[in-house]
Amino acid sequence: MIPPDLAMLAARIPDGAKLVVPPDYSGVAVAATLALIARGVRALHLVCAPTSGLQADLLIGAGAVHTIETSAVSLGEFGAAPRFVEAVRAGALRVLDATCPAIHAGLQAAQKGLPFMPLTGLLESDLLTVRPDWRVIENPFPPHERLVALPAIRPDVALFHAPLADRHGNVWIGRRRELVTMAQASRHTFVTVEAIGEDDLLANERTAAGTISSLYVDAIAPVPNGAWPIGLWDHSPPDTQALSNYASAARTADGFTRILADWSRRGTAT
């Protein structure tokens, strides 16, 4: 069953939203993603900051993604992301391929309220041929070399999972600074957390530097184990058995439907 908090959070992510999510090593809100799928979300523009794995594969398999903007989709040591690969093969997915620093740069542009961010080092790649929205510009300063301008990526919603929030709505993200960029670049930020603590995270200098202020956070839902089966830093290891089961089951559409139903029933009960 989907917990009420999560159902409410999922209801606030509309069809067609530009949704930004973090990579598997950061803090992935898998329980919230299952809630989003349960509510039947459609036509998402999924931005992976800068890659994704299980989360993108779940959303693609559920038919929830129209466009994916990413530097890679992979289940890491468990192999290819089967629903992603199948959707690409079938031509059922619009893929805006990128490279990691380009996605970071697009989000950083939005974070700074800039229209674009230039980067060096991208000119020789075929990515430029598949990304006509990336423009080659000239450095206005000497030595006037050519740079690539990456348009700002301004998501409607950032969604991620973190270990801790406080009663004021501040969220502790430690050294996972890409979560700060995601939150500040997006119009709305929804976070699931392992726990909501009593202490004000911004009142203590030791936690303040690793905290996203409530200024950038719209809603927080406590969801213990909310990243399962993906790990959360040193807090919880990945459930390698579950991930391995997924990698083999999701090779077929039927297998995917079965495991999605299993996981949705499981909810966050454990």
Binding site: A80, T99, L122
Partner: peptide, 13 residues
Amino acid sequence: RWPGCFGSTYLYH
């Protein structure tokens, strides 16, 4: 289809 370019484009440069 492989996973994608990751950071290779930039790091190789």
